[in-house]
């Protein structure tokens, strides 16, 4: 780094100007910190501190009413041999992977909605965005009724065409897929809005040039829209993978909250990592073990996000 002491005469004015820009009045710096303090403090107190505490608690065993003893790696060795943890991780990863199918879907819908002179575009956008602003609990309750094996709308519609539908969320064979449909349905609107914004940021000249060269709308979509959209798709995939890995509310409500959920024959196929954490932390009062479960989830999320960042070089184009 160039400093005034070692700098040549020529570089001096530039360095001085640089210095002037950097050295702000002390009070200004203090005020800057004062302004970020509420957010910063909130972050430290409500996010960072609990994370560190949880990490510490994952090495302890808890009583039902507080008080903990250090048990070292015991929770983690138990974690590795607990078949429920393995199944929950499997379920969560499967849900996350299937949930990614929502991304191409959102791109297609966004492309359809991005066409110029499309009538009623506001209506479509509202319709797609509505599930996003609806409370997840309400969404889950509603779908629970729709999926009811005997009285649900889904099976009544299927009955019209002569299909005897299953008990969607009580049947181990269908439960996960039924859940993914709800997950995609409730997130496609959010992704769609982001993709729309991304599409509107693509320079019009590219399309004009392409149509002069004789490229049709389909070709333009694959050759211009998709590559130009890849940074947006990358962002969306990062966010939705993290969101999917933390899935809780949908399953909690759809399987029937509380211990009764375990009487759902499909429960072992639906139980997510966060759900298992909830049961250990708040139902059976096994808080140390619960802490170990979420720390493992944190590691899983970090690992998958890292992999995604490594893979982005292969498919994301920054214009």
């Amino acid at each position: 780094m160039t400093t005034p002491l070692t700098g040549t005469a020529e570089s001096r004015p530039a360095a001085a100007a640089h210095q002037a820009r950097r050295r702000r009045p002390r009070s200004e710096i203090l005020w800057g910190y004062a302004f970020i303090a509420p957010t910063g403090l909130g972050l430290v107190i409500f996010y960072l501190w609990p994370v560190l505490q949880t990490a510490y608690f994952s090495f302890t065993e808890w009583g039902a009413f507080g008080g903990h003893t250090w048990t070292g790696l015991e929770n983690y060795t138990r974690l590795l041999s607990d078949p429920e943890v393995g199944q929950a991780v499997l379920n969560t990863v499967l849900y996350t992977a299937l949930g990614l199918l929502g991304i191409p879907l959102a791109i297609v819908f966004a492309a359809l909605m991005n066409r110029p002179r499309l009538r009623g575009v506001g209506l479509y956008r509202t319709a797609f965005f509505l599930p996003v602003v609806t409370m997840p609990v309400a969404v889950a309750m509603l779908w629970r009724w729709l999926y009811n094996g005997d009285y649900g709308l889904v099976n009544q519609v299927l009955a019209v065409v002569g299909i005897d539908g299953p008990n969607w969320i009580a049947d181990p064979a269908t439960a996960m897929y039924a859940l993914v449909v709800v997950g995609i349905w409730s997130s496609v609107g959010y992704n769609l809005i982001i993709f729309l914004a991304g599409m509107q940021g693509i320079p019009k000249e590219l399309y004009e040039a392409a149509s002069m060269d004789g490229a049709g709308p389909v070709r333009q979509f694959f050759r211009i829209t998709l590559p130009m959209l890849s940074p947006t798709a990358f962002f969306v995939s990062i966010v939705s993978v993290i969101g999917s890995l933390q899935l809780f509310d949908l399953v909690f409500v759809m399987t029937g909250s509380g211990q009764a959920a375990r009487a759902n024959p499909a429960y072992s196929r639906l139980q997510t990592v966060v759900q298992l954490f909830y049961e250990r932390a708040f139902v059976t009062d096994d808080r140390g073990y619960a802490a170990a479960i979420v720390i493992a989830l944190l590691v899983l999320i970090a690992a998958l996000t890292f992999v995604q960042f490594r893979l982005q070089r292969r498919w994301v184009h920054y214009a």
Binding site: Y147, N148, G149, D150, Y151, G152, P166, N167, I169, A170, D171, G256, A263, N264, P265, A266
Partner: peptide, 8 residues
Amino acid sequence: DLKTMTDT
């Protein structure tokens, strides 16, 4: 069966 009783 249990599936039916889970749904309703």
